[in-house]
Amino acid sequence: MIQKAKNETTDPSEWQPRIVAFLCNWCSYAGADLAGMSRLAYPAAIKIVRVPCSGRVDPMFVIKSFEQGADLVLVSGCHPGDCHYTSGNYHARRKLLAFRELMTFFGIDPRRFKISWVSAAEGAKWSNLVKEITDEVKALGPFETYSEILTGETGP
């Protein structure tokens, strides 16, 4: 059985969600950095993975995160028009929105997958965003659709 991390317990009052966030190097990561430098507190449930561009994020990153026990996955990049590589976020937008529809079609809860634009100047937006999504995923509870299939015991 692939096991969940130690900090997760089954007691709902103690349960801490695990959020995996893929942040583009140029805007959202810098925005999160700004939040830190500005001493803006936000929940520690979020684990940040820095990627060069939101366009780098393949849907398999999201699936893999769920497989490894993520309760929510966030992809964040530069606002449209601000991409360091001109158009990476425009491509990301097409791909990731389509991916979310595919998840929905399969019946995998789309509320578990968030996309956001956070600029390098938006430390406050980042901090609030993380608070909001943490509250939302806490209300949703553990991602049971995926935790049920983690054990890999189904099949013909």
Partner: peptide
């Protein structure tokens, strides 16, 4: 098939 802690 494994994660960073355990596997099969």
């Amino acid at each position: 098939e494994a994660n960073w802690q355990a596997g099969q």
